[in-house]
Nucleic acid binder design. Structure first.
Length: 177
DNA sequence: TAAGTGATCTCT
DNA sequence: GAGATCACTTAA
């Protein structure tokens, strides 16, 4: 199968579906002039205005505005004043949702993924693709359902018992090199 | 286990 | 404008 860059149609679907399907797809970027591609191993879904863990839950702000736009755009923000976190906007326009990329290849942890790829606020609000220097490809890697683990999301206790316990985190443990 | 770190958001 | 908060990481 020929590598295919994922486009709007892939990301326009339901957030949970996109999140699950993102496992095994390759995050591709340019680092120091060379191309770096790592298969995505861990993601979390943040699904719209009713999701109390989603940044868009309290309405549109300058920071989260990109989530209200069309799918396939990067949402990058600084967390704890230290770490950049990488999200891809999902769902139709005006439905604020995104998927957080928490792990790729042998890199575990959302802050470490961005550091590995050299991602900063520069990519924020850009459309995922070569022009942004950062995109996602389907390279034909096959992910079996049994290899996917679903757990609650990390670090969102503030969202209350209902939303913080939703199994919106997807981990692929079938990656082998 | 605790602190660093600074943008962002919610009050005054 | 001030104060609290935070989708994390690292060093103990």
């Amino acid at each position: 199968m020929k590598p295919a860059i994922l486009d709007d149609d892939f990301f326009r679907r339901g957030t949970l579906r996109v999140a699950r399907d993102l496992l095994g797809k390759h995050l591709v970027g340019r680092v120091n002039g060379a191309e770096l591609a790592l298969p995505i191993t861990e993601v979390e879904a943040y699904d719209g205005p009713n999701d109390r863990a989603c940044h868009a839950h309290r309405g549109r702000t300058a920071r989260n505005a990109v989530m209200f736009g069309p799918p396939g755009f990067w949402y990058v923000y600084l967390c704890y004043g230290v770490h950049w976190l990488l999200n891809i906007v999902t769902g139709p326009e005006d439905f604020p949702a995104a998927v957080l990329i928490r792990g790729a290849g042998d890199v575990c942890g959302p802050g470490r993924v961005t550091r590995r790829f050299g991602i900063t606020g520069d990519q924020d609000r850009k459309s995922a693709g070569p022009a942004a220097g950062l995109w996602i490809e389907d390279r034909g890697l096959r992910v079996r359902r049994k290899e996917i683990e679903r757990t609650p999301r990390i670090g969102i206790g503030y969202a209350g018992p209902v939303w913080s316990s939703k199994p919106y985190r997807f981990v692929w443990d079938g990656v082998r090199s």
